[in-house]
Simulated scan of single mutants.
Amino acid sequence: MFLKCVAIDDEPLALKLISAYISRIPEVKLINTFEDAISGAEYINHTPVDLVFLDINMPDISGVDLARALKKKPMIIFTTAHKQFAFDGFELDAVDYLLKPIDFERFSKAIYKALDIKRYKSDIVSAEEDAFIYVHSEYRMIKIILKQIEYIESMEDYVKIHIHNEKPILSLMTLKKILEMLPDPQFKRIHRSYIIPVSKVRSVQNKKIQLETVVLPIGDSYLENVKTWLY
């Protein structure tokens, strides 16, 4: 695992020092540097970046304001010569706050803190990818991988679980019961007859939800709830 990093600082010597420090840490790759904060923000909003070294005191926009304005939210390590900005940095959940002049030992501690955070988030994603439930069907227990569920449909006393590229599975239970087995907020009920995985929503129009493989109606009594988690 490694971090893709960007550094933004109006001082060329500061960028040179960050580049030199990063070159000594194999788990980190510096993919770009910017002396202009606006150009740096534009780059981050259009390029996958794990970590940004961001100077706070810059002439065109402060690093704190830039962090707040970013559409994409990478991890941020603030760098500055001014102690009074520390509170603003931590208020934005910054990974760390480095006071200039930065020594390598302090710099490397901040880097490895960011690596730990990325590993932790990666472990959570892996657990979600492997998540499953068991349902009773055709006199046996069937394992259902949650990420493979397209949607779930009520059929009187049964639920019909539509699985990606597989035959649907029928199980004797209610939608309410199976919804209790599914993780919230990954799965939501949109109609008295349908539960959907939120990650598979492609568009919403005229009280209809477009999923990857089907268009389903939104029930009138569920419309307001759908708006709260979709918009």
Rank of each mutant, 00 (worst) to 15 (best):
N57H: 14
G89L: 04
N165Y: 07
P26D: 04
A127T: 04
K118A: 12
A7R: 05
L146F: 10
I111A: 04
V204Q: 06
K188L: 08
K167S: 14
S154G: 14
V198D: 09
I22S: 02
S137Q: 10
A131W: 02
R202P: 00
I195P: 04
E42T: 15
K227V: 08
R140Y: 11
F2S: 14
E35T: 15
A86I: 08
E150N: 12
R68C: 05
L66M: 15
L13N: 15
S39D: 14
K167D: 13
L182W: 04
T33M: 06
E153Y: 00
Q84G: 10
A114F: 01
F85K: 10
I18P: 07
I144V: 13
D88Y: 10
S126V: 03
P74T: 08
L15N: 11
G40M: 07
Y139E: 15
Y151E: 05
E224V: 11
R202W: 01
R140S: 14
Q186M: 12
D130Q: 14
I111R: 00
T80V: 09
Y151M: 06
P74S: 13
K188D: 07
A14I: 04
Y158E: 04
I145L: 15
L211Q: 10
V226Q: 01
V52W: 10
K208F: 09
K29P: 03
L182M: 12
I195L: 06
I144K: 04
F107Y: 09
E180V: 05
A81R: 00
E166M: 13
K167A: 14
P12K: 03
F34V: 09
V49P: 01
E91A: 14
I25R: 05
Y112D: 11
I77D: 01
E138R: 12
V214D: 10
S154H: 06
S193H: 06
A20K: 14
R119Q: 12
A14Y: 02
T33W: 09
W229C: 06
L182D: 03
K29A: 12
S203P: 08
P185W: 05
L15Y: 11
D9P: 02
K109M: 11
T47A: 07
E27D: 13
I117L: 15
K71D: 11
V49W: 05
V215G: 00
K160G: 05
N225V: 08
I144C: 06
S154W: 04
I25H: 07
I44F: 02
Y97V: 00
D184I: 13
V226E: 00
T79G: 03
N32H: 15
Y120K: 13
R202S: 12
E150G: 02
M155F: 15
E11W: 01
I142F: 09
E138I: 11
A86H: 03
V214K: 15
Q84M: 07
H191Y: 11
I61W: 00
